[in-house]
Design a protein around this nucleic acid. Sequence first.
DNA 1: TCCCTATTATGAGGACCCGC
DNA 2: GCGGGTCCTCATAATAGGGA
Length: 473
Amino acid sequence: MIADLKPYAQYKDSGLPWLGQVPAHWRVVRNGSLFGQRSQTGYAELPILEVSLKTGVQVRSFGGAKRKQVMSDFGKYKRAVKGYLAYNTMRMWQGALGICPVDGLVSPAYVVARPYPDVEPQYFAALFRTGDYMAEIDAASRGIVKDRNRLYWDQFKQMRSPCPPPAEQAAIVRFLDWANGRLERTIRAKRKVIALLIEQKRAVVQRAVTCGIDPTGRFKPSGIPWLGNIPSHWTTARLKHCISRIEQGWSPQCDAQPAGDNEWGVLKVGCVNKDMFRGAQNKRLPATLQPDPSLEVADGDILVSRANTTELLGLAALAESPRKKLLLCDKLFRFRALAACFDSKYLVLLLRSRPCRAQIESSTNGASSSMQNIGQGVLKNLWLAVPPLPEQLQIVQRIAADTQPLTAAIARLEREIEFLREYGTRLIAEVVTGQLDVRDAAARMPDEVSADFAEDPGDEREDSELADEEAEA
DNA sequence: TCCCTATTATGAGGACCCGC
DNA sequence: GCGGGTCCTCATAATAGGGA
């Protein structure tokens, strides 16, 4: 249905440089003729609403540990009636606006506007959040620095907007609800498939590093409870017997910007992440400080983050061809695999596998809820299953071969999601500015179309079906 | 009362520092 | 050298208060 959309038959100049041409039967009007400002106070019993960049207007939740800053005197809060437009004057240039889902109260710093008769507020909310309109809002906002830019009502009411006939506004809202719902369902289905593929990759690695490449071979008890059975020709060893000395780096006060070519930089913990090694995560070492060349990160170094949030704590990565002149920071452990025991790539895969991660995560320290630590002892005393070296190389190759299609599929799906998001943004902009005529499409839509049908349990079933189709593809 | 600027609260992430 | 705690930055979403 979306592919069938066509431009309108006739256009005229809108008189607005950012808008260009609009359908010949649309008007271009000032916002002051669409909305009237409302500043009603003294309704302390109503729920508090918040205006978010991401979610628009919603009832503020006071649950959980999240901070909720609230003025002590609700009497100053403004009443916002269901269906009214509310925007955050300080963030309007970023799209902080929405239509009130229920009667409530908003901060005195917000603007509340009542739509006049024959104005469909959802149409204008979509229009105000398009990139071109937000640029106009930015230009009309005032403040000492960009981050303090505010859009006052006097400026807002002078701004001009395209205005389709009322029935057409409703048709556009109806169409966008339907189109956004389809896009979101498709994206959810793709995200489910990505999660399955990631799980499948983990399973491939875990199977390989615990069972080897011959699952029909003979097994023996490893003697280590969490390790279970291992192939009968494998041995076990603590990590400290298989690696060089563990080193920690240096944390000088660095410049804010990354190091340039031929400058010394300090490699930060962010270099080790879920995507393995990101050598670009560095800060410039001030010229007044003397680098210790022995701390330079070299090809083949195994890096482990010793302090981070739980998800990234203890993650290992292999420094492969890092740029020159990068010093190790003090939140990274560094060691090298002893050539007689482990292939470096195999050891990193092993340390990132679920059983090892579970052992590391169960040994974390740290009082801070967001920052956890592990000591060298945790790593040194980690028990590992050790296959013969030739088999390690075979396992690395097998894992690479088995996970390559999964990695490629994940990358493809992520690209598709990005494309769908861009497509959705472009579609909204083209529809609300009259570049595409959706009247016929809206008239042919099923009756049950609703903006919040994402919550419909029936959708879950459709999501699963879509996800199954994706997975099969 | 409105306009405008300054300041605050909170979580996440992580850089930096210090005691043992 | 090592381990772990503190504090900083950033993003977001406001509130506070002075002056016209």
